[in-house]
């Protein structure tokens, strides 16, 4: 294929990463079927940020949209990475939990409602400390309730990535979709460097960071399910395929023995490199669904 064919495709694609949280969420639905819930005009802001001298946001950085995907009911909960690092506070956490619980209620009433989580987040909002931690616990418990009835699909598109408590939410979801640009991990690179030193993890070494936290590695190791290009159409198609697949036979977090055995088998006598690890994991039965 010649470059003149390849370049227009790339240039003409509609980037998903370049969209803000609201536009990302809207782009996933069947046209004309969606409606935003508790939007910016309701002005439900964080009551804690202003007390600490920080300007709040009218939707607290959390966008909830209900609509249809491929004709099936679905709700999308999107975190805005540009506002306070996409962090989860009391209000944004409550919005997410309530949306998930309503989806569970509808699903139990015979109207399976998938949830799509767009996670661009550093995790708990430090300014709201315990309330944020409580929110993460509530969100996880709500995801666990919903995923028995309808798929919970996490998308980590980048460029913020998904870290901290919200990486656990990605972990318990039914499917995780990532781009090559995205990162997923419990502790962010800068946190690891700060706590354990630059010898342990150099957060400025992009090749190293992406080799460990990047979408390609996460999907390659079976810790995420689909690697998709940064293209709004392709991401919407990936979401639709997950919605159609429905509830997986066995969720990743139900495969306790598999992951225990993996950790037990780790040879830490020498430095493990990401490529070797991926090779080992990709071939392990059950790693990639």
């Amino acid at each position: 294929m010649s470059a003149s064919i390849l370049i227009p495709d790339f240039v003409n694609r509609k980037s998903f990463i370049e969209l803000d949280a609201r536009a990302r969420a809207q782009s996933l639905f069947d046209e004309g079927t969606w409606k935003e819930l508790v939007g910016p005009f309701d002005r439900i802001e964080s009551p804690w940020l202003a007390k600490q001298g920080i300007a709040p946001q009218f939707d607290d950085g959390c966008v909830v949209i209900k609509g249809k995907i491929g004709g099936s009911p679905a709700v999308t909960i999107a975190f805005e990475g540009a506002f306070q690092g996409g962090s989860v506070g009391e209000v944004s956490g409550a919005k997410m939990t309530a949306a998930l619980d309503l989806a569970t209620k509808d699903s139990k009433a015979g109207k399976p409602t998938a949830a799509i989580l767009l996670l661009e987040t550093g995790g708990v909002r430090l300014q709201e400390a315990n309330l944020g931690l409580a929110a993460v616990a509530e969100i996880i418990s709500s995801v666990l309730a919903l995923r028995q009835h309808a798929p919970v699909i996490t998308i980590v598109a980048g460029t913020v990535g998904c870290f901290g408590g919200m990486s656990l939410v990605a972990g318990v979801s039914s499917y995780t979709i990532m781009t090559r640009e995205a990162r997923l991990g419990l502790n962010g690179p800068e946190v690891i460097e700060q706590e354990s030193g630059i010898d342990e993890f150099d957060s400025s070494d992009r090749a190293l960071i992406w080799a460990i936290h990047g979408g390609e590695q996460r999907v390659g190791m079976g810790l995420a399910d689909l690697l998709v290009e940064d293209d709004a159409g392709k991401i919407a198609a990936a979401v639709l395929s997950c919605v159609r697949k429905g509830v997986p036979e066995k969720h990743r977090t139900e495969q306790v023995e598999l992951y225990r055995a993996r950790i037990a088998a780790l040879d830490t006598s020498s430095q493990i490199d990401p490529a070797t690890l991926r090779q080992q994991r990709a071939n392990t039965k059950g790693g990639v669904r």
Partner: peptide
């Protein structure tokens, strides 16, 4: 009509016009 644009990100702001 009403409008909402922008994000409270560094160097940016959001506007609600009602």
């Amino acid at each position: 009509k009403r409008a909402h644009v922008g994000v409270v990100g560094s160097g940016d702001m959001e506007v609600l016009l009602e």
